[in-house]
Design a protein around this nucleic acid. Sequence first.
RNA 1: GGAGGCAUAGUCUAAUGGUAGGACGGCGCCUUUACACGGCGCAAGCCUGGGUUCGAUUCCCUGUGCCUCCACCA
Length: 783
Amino acid sequence: MHDSYISKEVEDKLRKLWTDEGIYKFDSESKKQVYSIDTPPPTISGLIHMGHVFSYSQADFVARYKRMRGFNVFYPFGFDNNGLPTELLVEKNNNITAEKVGREKFIELVEKETKKYEDIYKDVWTHVGISVDWSLLYSTISKEAQITSQRSFLELSKLNRVYRKETPTIWCPKCKTAVSQMELKDKMVKSKFVDIRFKDDVIIATTRPELLPAVVAIFVNPNDEKNRKHVGKLVRVPIFGQEVKVFADSRVDPKKGTGIVMCSTFGDLTDIEWYKAYDLDLKIEMDDKGRMLNEYFKGMSVKEAREKITEDLKEKGYVLGDKSIEHSVNSHERCGTEVEFLVKKQWFVKYLDMKKDLIDLGNKLKWHPEYMHVRYDNWINGLQWDWSISRQRYYGIPFPVWYCKKCDEPVLAEESELPVNPMETMPKKKCAKCGSAEFAPEYDIMDTWMTSSLTPLINTRFWLDNPRKNVYPMSLRPQAHDIISFWLFTTVVKCYLHTGKVPWSDVLISGHGLDKHGKPMHKSLGNVVEPLPVIEKYGADALRHWASLSRLGEDASFQEKDVISGAKLVNKLWNVAKFVSKNSSENIKKSNNVVDRWMLSKTMELIKNVTMEFESYNSAGAKRLIDEFFWSFCDNYLEFIKYRIYGNGDKPDYILSHVFFAILKMMAPFLPYVTDEIYLELYAKDEGKKSIHVTDWPKYEENLIDGNSLETGDKILRIISYIRQWKHARKMALNAEIQKLEIEGDLEDGMEDIAGAMKIKNVLKGIGEEEVPGTGIRIRIVA
RNA sequence: GGAGGCAUAGUCUAAUGGUAGGACGGCGCCUUUACACGGCGCAAGCCUGGGUUCGAUUCCCUGUGCCUCCACCA
């Protein structure tokens, strides 16, 4: 074996070997039980950082463990290139807009561009040692994903789970599209809170006086002593003159403004809630571009209209005062425009009636950690609207739908036509309702969650040629906690509707990888740590060591010192391997030595405990046990056996090699490179496997546990530690010779081992002077 | 505003109903044939207040601080 371990060389070599030998390949012919993982497809946005390494490593620990437990592991990878971040990236890199080049062409460009990033991403993931089978790669804009999404829509339609309805929608007047809640960001703006007198004692403070023509009701809090007398009365709106009713609703904050709120259709989300809850009139006072419709200020922008109406109100004496405020408003993250609420026809997935089922489904999942389950339940209990799935965006997967030009009846595509772009293809049939053959395409596209919610079905090729058997329901969904309410939730909804089953048996929720101060990594904060330079410097195993330290579900800050510890651990493993390689033999006789039996017993206990931790998805716990054991193995056991190796005692070769092999295997999911390199050097020849990652997990043999040796070993360790302190107090080297050790008390075995480890010429039963704490044994040391 | 998580030496963290283990850093000793990228040792810590208990860092409540998600922002 080489004197020192050079991570870069070994990693380059092993990456190639793993690929060439297909170590991580899913075997579709195998009869072995499948363990399938619904890997999160990272967004193609041009950036990978330690946060990704952190969460993907945690899933990889599980994958590698399961592989060694004999499962046929289905571990795919995907790229999410169907969404705004990718769209923006591709537009920027090519200096184009999706709309100008056309959808088909743009998707081609995305796929080309994605390929570049795929190569970069794949390079990082393979360097990190994520053991996915790259032949299972998918992308969320691919033809397969399009077929799956569109088919899903058709199926939901058969189930009467989709409907189209005119409803208030978050709208960007500049981009002229509906936007999802996720595409909004808060923006602080300066604004004026104007007090407007409707009636003598009905004064309303508003920042949106231009919405007066759209006012349809007035609200006060039911507990508001001062204002509740107005409830049920009719009040006339200044200038526009419509009479509206006053309602009581707890959503009104009596302390804010005057405690009286006007409700217009629509100023904000509360207005929409009230509109729905009280069945209010609908007054559309704004067009797609954010221009006012009312004759009073027709064609003006929101801002112009606001100025004009404020002036007029002042002139006519309706304004009692105003106050400058700064408040946050929702704006479109892409262009910064303040969003409005317009009434538009949108497609919805109906699921509000499924709340109880969805809660039940959540109960069927095994959540790791368990407390993450609450977030899922909370989300469902708080749902107020069905899932709006249409977007008036350009880039994405189209709805497989046309509308009859005569009667507006929707016509759905045939399954055999998928994927279909209704803007380019027309239906081959006539309108079922009126017989017309003239159709207009649906121009909207589907929300990206419509596609990403289908990853288990994309993975299993549910509606595609050559569907994969035994993959679904999948075994594991690993993901971070921030998207429980989106990705996890929507996947449960869709997979349940399509398959009647919950899509996985276990859910593994990881935290975020943060910078060293505990802040999220963001390009704009300049705190992004990229994985490859760290791998270059310390090795991939060292980096994975960092990822293996924190408790499941907890965020972890990136500490370089933890990577350094990892590098030291790797180095230590290598050095022990050298020691083992020099001192191993074919000798497999059972040892009667108490220290050997102690070591073997401890190893069995370790296997049992580590396995238990892995089975409960606590890989950090497993890693801790192994690390602790390994360091003790080095510092104690190896010191105990050297005298026998270098002297004439019973050679402990077999135990040494056997125990180290068990440690190595249990380390393998975490440190795949160094463990495999050592395996190939030391053990592969006997076992005949091509990689440690396809060997069997160490076997727990209860009959090897010897209670007596465990007790004795513990005592011996305490005595050793005591003698070490004794030597230290005399500034002696640890290997300095001691003449004599007298032991008084209950210790039958291990005298020779103490003598050997501590270089004591003569260890004998005798009269002790000092008690070794925790042993009940007294000793006397004679220098 | 709602929900959830976290709070342990200078820093990062672990376990635990009977006063705490590790890592980095600090100090000191040891060039021992796997390893000085090492070994051994020393100093240094349980956020505030209340409750349950013979006893709480651990369980419960409260406050405070940090983080995440959701909602609001008339």
